[in-house]
Design a protein around this nucleic acid. Structure first.
Lengths: 116, 116
DNA sequence: TCATCAGTTGAACAACCGCTCAACTACGAA
DNA sequence: TTCGTAGTTGAGCGGTTGTTCAACTGATGA
């Protein structure tokens, strides 16, 4: 049993071994954390919650949330790169909407955590 | 329609007004973001995933994850304060486990997002 | 063609966050 | 009581992150 940085002995070796055998790739945990990190900012949550109800353009989102277009655009870029939102262009406007209903499910589960 | 910081005009006033009427308290979004933020770190996700399988003490977690007791303890404190994990003391050991299965549900939904 | 406006981008800054380190508490064994 | 070990804590650091600012692109309409 490897524990290079751990500054202590293993107490319950059987349990540690069992849990270790069910551990997933380190990459998987990083991906998972990266996903949840996107839900870990109030502005982004507000954007996602708004898009849950309606496709919206950057300008309207900025007005709705009371922040600059630039701030919204930066956040939308993060959300787009992680495929949580999709967008279509129509002339000068960029219309954003949720990529799939996974996003809605995750948000709802979060709301549930407080409202039950 | 208020849009103090927004550096643009509202384009679709009807949509903005409708979405605005369904907006929740700013506090709610902050709470939600704070919750998801806890899932937004690989070490914490690994801790939660381990605890999903077994109640564990700090020392074993540290050995399992290859980090110091201190690092684990700091993370467990955050998780404890937000009631995502609970713990019981038995002599020198502190045994941690998931507070309820909301945590498991959220994690599973995250895994689903990648493995489907 | 030129002005205007929606949206994007990158740099810079301040705030935040996770880890380390060292000191500490608390419990158990001798 | 004294020592050893599990666990906690606070300060400090280095890296990350969200916003602002200014400059830019690209489409529209005069």
């Amino acid at each position: 049993m490897e524990h290079p940085l751990c500054d202590c002995e293993i107490i319950h070796e059987d349990i540690v071994r069992e849990v270790q055998s069910r551990q997933l790739d380190r990459e998987t945990y990083i991906s998972l954390a990266t996903l949840f990190k996107l839900f870990g900012d109030a502005t982004r949550v507000r954007i996602l919650h708004a898009l849950e109800q309606h496709e919206m353009c950057v300008c309207d989102l900025a007005a709705l949330l009371g922040v600059t277009k630039s701030a919204v655009s930066h956040q939308l870029k993060s959300l787009r790169l992680s495929r949580l939102v999709k967008y279509r262009r129509d002339g000068q406007n960029a219309y954003y909407s949720l990529a799939d209903d996974h996003v809605k499910k995750i948000l709802d589960l979060g709301f549930e955590h407080f409202f039950e």
